[in-house]
Design a protein around this nucleic acid. Structure first.
Length: 631
DNA sequence: GCGTCGACTTAGCAGCGGACTT
DNA sequence: AAGTCCGCTGCTAAGTCGACGC
């Protein structure tokens, strides 16, 4: 500290030394030359980097498999050749050093490796809210005891008497150490990861190298369910090669299991898209290794999904009038089906499959709605026949909405709720199978979720049309066009109830942005007064210098105005987006061709809307879409 | 018909790293 | 050069929906 202060003083002193004017000038000139040269160099480097980027992009584009220009395989066949290296397994557990101790009831206990590993899973989560929940703690403790040796199990009988403090500290230290790694160390880690990716991250599918989505076996740990999950805290077992089924071509180089191990099975099923699978022990479901979203297999399916949704566009009117008629049906099943479909269509609710009680958190969709999830209001805030929805949907995200409905729907709902307790099903004669059977009879491929895709995409298209007509008198800036796009996107996200927790730093970053805006406003005021002054001085003269100054000041004001507008637009966008997640709809619900066509029409670079991942995923749409595309 | 299984899509979040600011 | 911020990516849980077996 002291040294640096002295240095600063010294430097300052040197600056103060009086040189003869000529020397000063020369020095100044040299400095200017040096900075000029440096700026040039930086500029050149940037240009070179840019050129390289463009070249890489072109090369990548050349190599891209244009599967959408090829003929499709016969129904059900997903590939003709598939070769891969099998999944990547997480590293084996490394027992703790002796100086990291576990205490039970104040007494140091050396745990067996298996017990210790599970203890560490818990210790690592101690700063998480999970570990304070009874269900989590009880589940963890139950499963932990299963891993213990006979003696450990006899001794360790109360989780509250366990002291994981040193394990927790070690974990925190490790996180800290990782954060503080030097550039070289970080680089080394990066290279190791790259090697793993190069080896395990790709497969060969019908002569093309395709990226695998999740090529890593999920590491063991404690199950983190969402919401009030009855199984939270249970031990998620370590997966061994003996648990894994490999799927690949008969005539390919069969992946080798890790040394000393064997696969559960190697099969050659080209009617499925997965490369490997295993059974997960917490829920008993099957997990898969599959291809990346930019692959042919995923892309073709995605394209098909949007084509089905577009198919709905041509018959949605017919379907709507049909369920309007069905609302009056005497048959309970038909009547309930009509109301459910009305909700699915109007509110973009999910289908709502039945779930096994006690196995998962208590969430519902349309068909599984219970009486307690809706409240009927004959009159609410000036609207008649209002249905108030309040339930937990997928991922325990709350759906809360007050919706005016038709008299008929309202009357039907009253009927469905008659003589029922809150915990009973609203649609007791309906389930998703029944609903989907009916839907597929109306149009091939039509299911409940198609309505979500259809309504999301059609909403985007309509909103883009409405919002892109500029309300102001100037040519819209890029930022304003993007705000319009985001608003259209947001309308969809709200429809589909795609929420997010407000970012932890939201208030702070908002305040920062407003401070920036205020600063910019001051600058603008200053620029304006300077412009006024310049105008005054230039008035009546033809002095070139003064005219040039005037022009410069004019431009400065304009620049300031634009920057201010850009910041204000950004603030609006961010504020409106506080609790809304745009990503999910962009990724899963919005036909990319709508966005691509809009970008072309509005002269907006696609990169402003889609990041690299999305551009790769939607390469098919980017290639085939003309500006006149209509969903 | 009904329940279960299997395959595949949809979902939010944590952590990381690169861009941007100071 | 260091610090901050924010978008991207990976992760994996949680849905949908058809097939299959009884």
């Amino acid at each position: 500290m002291k040294i640096s202060e002295e240095t600063v003083l010294k430097v300052k002193k040197e600056e103060d030394v009086e040189y003869p004017v000529s020397v000063k000038r020369k020095k100044k000139k040299e400095e200017i030359e040096a900075t000029k040269a440096m700026k040039l160099r930086v500029k050149e480097e940037r240009m070179a980097a840019k050129a390289l980027k463009i070249k890489m992009k072109e090369e990548e584009e050349q190599q891209r498999w244009r599967w959408w220009e090829e003929e499709r395989y016969e129904c059900g066949i997903k590939w003709k050749f598939l070769e891969h290296k099998g999944p990547y397994f997480p590293p084996e557990y490394q027992p703790l050093p002796d100086n990291v101790r576990f205490f039970y009831n104040g007494e140091h206990i050396k745990l067996s490796p298996a017990t210790e590993e599970v203890a560490l899973f818990f210790a690592q989560m101690l700063d998480h809210e999970y570990t304070t929940k009874d269900v989590f703690r009880n589940n963890f403790f139950k499963d932990w005891r299963k891993e213990m040796t006979h003696d450990e199990r006899r001794l360790i009988v109360d989780l509250d008497k366990c002291d994981f403090g040193e394990l927790f500290q070690m974990h925190k230290d490790k996180v800290e150490a990782r954060r503080n790694m030097s550039q070289e160390e970080k680089q080394a880690v990066k290279e190791v990861n790259q090697k793993i990716l190069d080896k395990y991250g790709y497969c060969i599918l019908d002569h093309h190298r395709e990226r695998i989505g999740n090529f890593k076996i999920e590491p063991p740990g404690l199950f983190r369910g969402r919401g009030d999950h009855p199984k939270q805290g249970l031990l998620k077992r370590r997966i061994q090669p003996e648990d894994v089924i490999i799927n690949c071509s008969k005539d390919c180089c069969i992946p080798k299991p890790p040394a000393g191990h064997q696969w559960k099975e190697v099969r050659h099923d080209n009617t499925v898209t997965w490369l490997a699978s295993w059974m997960e022990n917490v829920q008993g479901s099957i997990k898969y290794i599959m291809l990346n979203a930019n692959s042919k297999l995923k892309g073709e399916k995605d394209w098909e999904k949007y084509e089905v949704a577009r198919g709905l566009k041509t018959c949605v009117d017919r379907i709507r009038s049909e369920y309007q008629v069905d609302l009056k049906s005497k048959k309970m099943e038909t009547c309930q089906r009509a109301v459910a479909l009305y909700f699915i269509d109007k509110l973009a609710l999910r289908a709502g499959n039945e779930k096994e009680e006690g196995e998962t958190a208590d969430t519902v969709g349309c068909c599984s709605l219970r009486v307690e999830h809706i409240t009927l209001h004959e009159q609410l805030n000036g609207d008649k026949c209002v249905v108030e929805f309040d339930f937990l949907g997928k991922d325990c995200i709350r759906y809360y909405n007050k919706v005016p409905v038709t008299k008929r729907v309202f009357k039907n709902l009253k009927l469905f709720m008659e003589n029922k307790q809150g915990g009973e099903d609203l649609f007791d004669r309906l389930n998703t199978t029944l609903l989907n059977k009916y839907l597929s009879s109306l149009m091939p491929g039509l299911t409940a979720k198609v309505f979500r895709t259809y309504n999301a995409s059609i909403t985007l298209q309509q909103q883009l049309r409405e919002l892109s007509i500029s309300e102001c008198n100037h040519i819209p800036l890029l930022a304003e066009k993007l705000l319009a796009y985001n608003r259209a996107n947001r309308a969809v996200a709200i429809l589909c109830n795609h929420q997010r927790a407000p970012p932890k730093t939201f208030e702070q970053s908002m305040a920062n942005l407003h401070a920036k805006i205020d600063h910019r406003k001051e600058q603008l005021a200053l620029a304006r007064s300077e412009l006024k002054q310049a105008k005054k001085e230039a008035k009546g003269t033809t002095d070139d210098k003064l005219q040039a100054v005037l022009e410069r000041k004019k431009r400065a004001v304009q620049r300031c105005e634009e920057q201010l507008l850009r910041l204000e637009v950004q603030a609006t966008d961010r504020e409106e987006n506080k609790q809304i997640a745009l990503g999910t709809s962009k990724l899963n619900y919005l036909d990319p061709r709508i966005s691509v066509a809009w970008c072309k029409n509005m002269d907006v670079p696609l990169e402003k809307i889609y990041n690299k991942t999305l551009r790769d995923k939607f390469a098919w749409a980017i290639h085939m879409t003309n500006p006149d595309f209509e969903f």
